[in-house]
Design a protein around this nucleic acid. Sequence first.
DNA 1: GAGCCGTGGAA
DNA 2: TTTCCAAGGCT
Length: 318
Amino acid sequence: MSTDLHHTPEHDATERPAPEPASVTASPRAAVLHDLVIDWFGAHARDLPWRRPDAGAWSVMVSEFMLQQTPVARVLPVHEQWLARWPRPADLAAESPGEAVRAWGRLGYPRRALRLHAAAGAIAQRHGGEVPHEHAELLALPGVGEYTAAAVASFAYGRRHTVLDTNVRRVFARVVTGVAHPPNATTAAERRTAASLLPADEATAARWAAATMELGALVCTARSPQCGQCPVAALCAWRLAGSPPHEGPPRRGQTYAGTDRQVRGRLLAVLRASPGPVPQAALDAVWHEPVQRARALDGLVEDGLVEPLAHGVYRLPA
DNA sequence: GAGCCGTGGAA
DNA sequence: TTTCCAAGGCT
């Protein structure tokens, strides 16, 4: 087994707050899963910029923000631009939030740009400019939830955390629970499953987190899983059950056309494209319905994505 | 906990 | 063409 265990320094795990409990029973089945998935990862992992040995925690953190609901392929070029322009958190913090929104481009959910900018400010102020190592400290940053805190701690610092994103949840739903898709919202049962399967060894746990995510992203996909390529197909509860289709409430789709989100997107696109303030008329042109248009603009202002100036002129926040 | 928050590519 | 969904977070 070439699990490629990087030997991390022997820093004391006991001094860290609230370490995640080791699995009660280190079952043989779990050990087999670990080896199979981690070995597969060693052979098939994508070479992503934020995974390279020289990628720092800031690179990892920026990638995690951008990857929240946005595919890797679209993140790659923007991530590269951001790291080149703002190589450290303090560099981004020194910019205006509007520049972060502008550089976010068309990744979607631009509030993430605002939150990442605010997180950079908090890191510069409270953490000496270094992305914090502790899960609790990460969680306290704007835009960092349970998943992102675990991901940064695990991927950037090799810490042991349950990293439960949509990929991992789907892998566990199939391999462990035997259903086609996880529930709409993360459940306590899923957290227990993830915790029970988390390898006790810190470095292995971090490797496992990345490996299970990658398996979900490349093989155990939502639409058409490539079970023929899966290292754990023979152990997969879903396969062994005959790959039954999804049951229960439909996985809620998100309508978009005609929503406030679409209007917000169009308004912000105008602001991003303009180097300076934009007159009301330029914004009015993007949507015919005045009530919805005004509501969308108000929402953007409310969110801090747009700054109203005097006499009907708007700009990205300074 | 349900609803909201962008965008674009693939099926 | 329509639908699905992609490394979530916040209220």
